[in-house]
């Protein structure tokens, strides 16, 4: 196993991790502030990607498309919050799961109805298609590095937003005592809509950026959603710091596992067997990781509320 390959895969893992962070931060904020479990978060990822693909095709500019995608995802998020989600805050988790599962069905089938089952075409902008030479000598796609950069920027932005601004203060207050900030005159309904739309916008941003790497299609948000769940369970639900840590951990472990486990098994198995066992184990790796962490810390690594 060469060092170059290792570094390359490590960066791939980081890239997956930053994407997961964009998804997980929204999920964990919504849970932390409103106590809501939102399965439909993956739908905003899809909406962001579709809006970006359509807007990019219409305007010819990826960056215009990206802005449009994020705005559309935020708008759809706000709308969904106003129509459906706000009726669910005081409901048991079972109701929240079912209602947001219903939203997934509506979004997925609605999108399939409008745009068909075949994927839309979206590619990274011309200016970002080049390669960068890494310290080890490997050439790495610039666009993937840009994704990591955006993820880090968002993480810093979120940190500043939450720790330094008035809105952030309200979000933190909302996490620790919902009734009290309502009593102190904060417009809770508006705060909730805002937080939810922000989460949707982050998911849309992730979907748009990954959509340019993979494909923009119905159901693209679901695998990411479930990984994001694993991330926030590992990190501790409600904790942004936990989401960041968990996302990077899951991204790196998953990516490295898929590459290096089959190679590891090739040392004492036939190549075809090693590929099968390695792939199967690699697919389970992050779930095993989650189980081990939960066995010791049932509330995750950075549990927000005690």
């Amino acid at each position: 196993m060469s060092v170059t390959l290792f570094i390359e895969q490590l960066i791939n893992g980081l890239q997956l991790g930053t994407m997961l962070f964009l998804m997980a931060s929204g999920l964990t904020l919504v849970f932390g502030v409103m106590g809501l479990i939102n399965l439909a978060h993956g739908s905003f990822y899809m909406v962001g990607a579709y809006a970006t693909a359509l807007a990019t095709a219409a305007t010819g500019s990826f960056f215009t498309g990206l802005v449009a995608g994020v705005l559309v995802a935020a708008a759809v998020g706000a709308l969904v919050e106003l129509i459906v989600i706000r009726r669910l805050y005081h409901r048991p988790h079972l109701d929240q799961v079912l209602a947001t599962f219903a939203l997934i069905l509506i979004f997925s089938e609605g999108t399939r109805w409008l745009f068909g089952s075949s994927p839309l075409w979206l590619s990274p902008p011309q200016s970002l298609t080049g390669f960068v030479t890494l310290p080890g000598g490997a050439r790495y796609p610039l666009y993937r590095l840009v994704i990591i950069g955006v993820g880090i920027a968002v993480a810093i932005g979120l940190y500043l937003l939450i720790s330094r601004t008035r809105l952030g203060m309200r979000i933190r207050a909302g996490e620790s005592d919902r009734e009290m900030i309502g009593a102190l005159g904060v417009n809770i309904a508006r705060l909730y809509t805002l937080v939810f739309a922000m989460g949707a916008a982050l998911a849309g941003l992730a979907g748009a950026m990954v959509g340019a790497l993979q494909s923009v299609q119905v159901g693209m948000g679901e695998p990411v959603l479930i990984l994001a769940f694993v991330v926030i369970v590992i990190g501790g639900i409600g904790s942004i710091k936990g989401a960041l840590f968990g996302a990077v951990l899951v991204g790196v472990v998953d990516t490295l596992g898929r590459v290096f486990l089959p190679a590891l098994f090739r040392n004492f198995m036939s190549p075809s067997e090693a590929a099968g066992v390695g792939a199967a184990l690699a697919a389970m790796l992050i779930y095993i990781l989650m189980a081990v962490i939960l066995a010791f810390k049932p509330k995750g690594l950075f549990a927000a509320n005690g």
Binding site: I37, I237, P298
Partner: peptide
């Protein structure tokens, strides 16, 4: 675990 954790863990 309980609550949301339980839901997500069984899913995972």
């Amino acid at each position: 675990t309980t609550g949301v954790y339980f839901i997500m863990i069984t899913l995972a």
